[in-house]
Design a protein around this nucleic acid. Structure first.
Lengths: 343, 343
DNA sequence: TTTTAGCACTCCGTTTCTTCGAGTGCTAAT
DNA sequence: ATTAGCACTCGAAGAAACGGAGTGCTAAAA
C-alpha cells in the first residue's frame, strides 16, 4: 500500500519533530504547529502509519516515535537537503586551510571538523596505502640490527616501521638499497610491490634478496595490522543526547567506537560507495543497534582510497549531516589533489 | 596532635574498606570485621578523627568517609605495599615482550597495559625528544617544494614532519643536506641543535643556510605543538565506578582527560619525580578535583625523559597502583635500554 | 464520505507520604 | 577506659496519590 500525500506530510513532520526533541510526538502538538488538519484527523492517520510499521508507541498514552522503516523512507525520499549557512561552510573550509602538513594531519583535522560541526561522533579512515603508488622508500639505521623504514606514496602518506636488518648490512648499504628499491618500484602500487619483487630481483638487490624480500613482506603486513588507521573524534559528544543519559548505554557505545579495527572494517566496506546511510539495526556493528552511521568516500586520482563518517543516534539530523559530508568530501578532494600535482 | 596507634589502625581500616566499597563505613561494620574494639569505642575514635579532619560524614546518620587529608596520610605513612601476584606480573611482562617495534609502540602498549591491569585510566607521555641525541636526519622529497623530515634519536624515537623546501633544491641535494646535518649534529641533544647551528654553519651547509635554519626551526616548533605526545588508554574504565554513574560527571572527566596538551603538561611536570601521588584538590587540573593521579617517571640513559600515570577516583587503590607503576617502570626501563645498546 | 469536536480512559512521570534501618551521640553501667 | 543500651536522625526505597498529555471511539458537522 502506498502512502498518500497527507500521510507522507504527517510522517515527515513527526520525524522532523522527533529529531529535534527526542520525545514522542503527539497529534495535538502537531496540529497546532502549522498542520492544516485537526488533531483527530492526524490521530487517525497516525494509527494507520503505526499499523503500516512507520511509527511506534512507547506506551498506550504516549505520542508516536518513528520506526527505522520511517527513517529509511525519510532518508530515501522525503528529506529535503539542508543548506549550510555561509558561516558554517566558512568554518568548515577553515579546517582545511590550516594543517596542510601531510595527509595524516588533514584527515585528523577532518575528523575534528566533522565532530565539532555535527556534534556527533566522527570517524575517518586513513587511506588504504595499498592502492597508492610508491614514491620513496628510505631505510634509516637505528642501531645494529635495526632500521626504520619510511614509506612515502604519491598521496603524501607516510608510514614508519621498525625492521630487522642483518648485522652485516651497514648504513651505506642501507642507503644504497633504499635508492635501488625506490628506483625500481617507483610508481608501482604498494600492493603489487612485493609480488613483483620475487620475479624481478636483479642488479644490486639480488645480493640481498632475502633481506629485501622480508623487508617488503614486513611492510605489507604491518600496513594491515596498524591500528592507528582510524581517526576518531568527538566520541563524548554522544553523552549530550538523552539516548545516552544512562551510563551503561554510553559505555557500550564508547567501547564499540574505540574498537579501531572494526571501525576500520566498517569504513573500508563503505569506501566503495559515494555515500551510505545505515540506520539502527541495519548496522552490523554490535553496539550500533541504536545508532545511525552516515559515510562518504574520498578519492585520490579518481580511485576511492578511503571513507569517513558520522555516527549519531538514529534520530540524527540526516539532512544536515549529509550536507556536511558532501561539503567535506569536496574540500577533502581539493586538498588531497593538491598533494599530488604531477611533476 | 599526633594520632595514636589505635586511631591509625581504625583510620586505615576505614580507608581500606571505603576503597573497596565506595560507601560510608560505619562503626558496627568495622567492629565486626576483625577489629578488637567495640563499636562504641570505634565510634568515639571516629568522632575524634572527624574533628581532626581525617573523616567526613555525608549526613548525620551515615558512616564516615575518608577526607583527602586521610588519603594523604594513608599514602605517605600507612599504606602497606601490595604485592602483585605472579600471574599479574607475568601478564604485565607480556605487554612488553610483544610490540617491540620502536619506542612509540612500546609506550602505547604501556598505556594499554596500565589501564587494563588497574582498571583505571592510564596516560603515557611520549619522551621529550629535546633531551635525546640526534642520530639521523633524513629528508625525503615528497613533491616539488615539499619534503618529509624524519628525525631519529638515540632512544629510537622518530618524528615525521612535512616541511617546505625551496623549489631549486633537488632530491640529490636533499639527500646531501641530510647527510651533512646528520654528520655534523650527530649525538647533539635535539634542544641544542638549532642554537648551535647558527654559529657553526659551514661547509656544504653554508650555501643553504636559510633553508637549513628554517628547517631546524620547524622541527623544534613542531615537536612542541604535536598533540599526539600523550597516549591515553582506558578512559571509559571510569564509567565502571559509582562516582561516575552521573553522565555529567563522566563527561567532565572524559573531556578533561582528552585535552592532550594539559595532560602533557601534567606529566611533563611529574617527570622529574620518581613517583608522585596527587590527591583530589591537590590537582591543578580543573576536572580532576575528584580524582587522584599517580605517576612514575621513566629514564633513558639515566636522564628522565618522560612519565606515565594512572588516573582514578580519589578512593583508588593506591597501594596496588603504586606497585604496578613500579613494576611497569622497571619493565619499561629494560625495554628502552635495549633500544640503545651503544655500538 | 470525510473531517472534527467531545469524552472517557490509560498510563507515565512526579510528587508526597510512609516505612525501614543503618548509624549516631549520649549516658550509665562495667 | 571501655562498652552496652537507648533514643534519635535522616536518607533510601517503596507505596500511594495526582496531574496531564495523549489515545481511541463515537457522534455530529461538513
Amino acid at each position: 500500500m502506498e502512502l498518500d500525500q497527507r500521510k507522507l506530510q504527517i510522517l515527515r513532520a513527526i520525524v522532523d519533530e522527533y529529531i529535534l526533541s527526542a520525545s514522542p510526538v503527539g497529534s495535538k502538538a502537531l496540529s497546532q504547529s502549522g498542520m492544516k488538519w485537526s488533531s483527530a484527523t492526524i490521530r487517525n492517520e497516525m494509527a494507520d502509519l503505526e499499523t503500516l510499521g512507520y511509527l511506534a508507541q512507547p506506551h498506550t498514552s504516549a505520542g508516536r516515535i518513528p520506526s527505522e522503516k520511517a527513517y529509511r523512507l525519510y532518508v530515501d525520499q522525503m528529506m529535503q537537503r539542508a543548506h549550510l549557512s555561509d558561516e558554517e561552510s566558512k568554518l568548515l573550509y577553515g579546517y582545511f586551510r590550516e594543517h596542510v602538513h601531510g595527509v595524516d594531519a588533514v584527515l585528523r583535522s577532518t575528523a575534528k571538523a566533522l565532530s565539532e560541526i555535527t556534534h556527533y561522533t566522527a570517524v575517518v579512515m586513513m587511506p588504504d596505502i595499498g592502492v597508492n603508488r610508491l614514491k620513496h622508500l628510505q631505510l634509516i639505521p637505528l642501531m645494529p640490527g635495526k632500521a626504520l623504514a619510511v614509506v612515502v606514496t604519491d598521496a603524501g602518506v607516510s608510514q614508519n616501521t621498525v625492521i630487522d636488518v642483518p648485522e652485516d648490512i651497514g648504513p651505506e648499504e642501507l642507503d644504497r638499497i633504499s635508492k635501488a628499491i625506490t628506483a625500481r618500484f617507483s610508481d608501482c602500487r604498494m600492493s603489487t610491490v612485493s609480488s613483483k619483487l620475487v620475479r624481478e630481483l636483479g642488479g644490486e638487490l639480488s645480493a640481498r634478496a632475502d633481506f629485501v624480500e622480508s623487508l617488503l613482506l614486513t611492510l605489507c603486513e604491518n600496513q594491515s595490522s596498524d591500528r592507528r588507521m582510524v581517526e576518531l573524534s568527538g566520541a563524548t559528544n554522544m553523552l549530550e543526547y538523552p539516548e545516552y543519559s544512562d551510563v551503561n548505554k554510553a559505555k557500550t557505545f564508547l567501547a564499540t567506537v574505540e574498537q579501531k579495527d572494526s571501525m576500520y572494517r566498517m569504513l573500508k566496506k563503505a569506501s566503495s560507495m559515494e555515500f551510505t546511510v545505515t540506520i539502527g539495526s541495519e548496522n552490523e556493528q554490535e553496539g550500533f543497534q541504536d545508532c545511525s552511521v552516515v559515510t562518504a568516500s574520498y578519492r585520490v586520482n579518481g580511485t576511492p582510497v578511503g571513507s569517513f563518517g558520522v555516527i549519531g543516534p538514529t534520530r540524527m539530523d540526516y539532512a544536515r549531516v549529509l550536507s556536511i559530508l558532501k561539503n567535506v568530501q569536496t574540500n577533502l578532494g581539493t586538498v588531497l589533489q593538491s598533494f599530488l600535482k604531477e611533476e
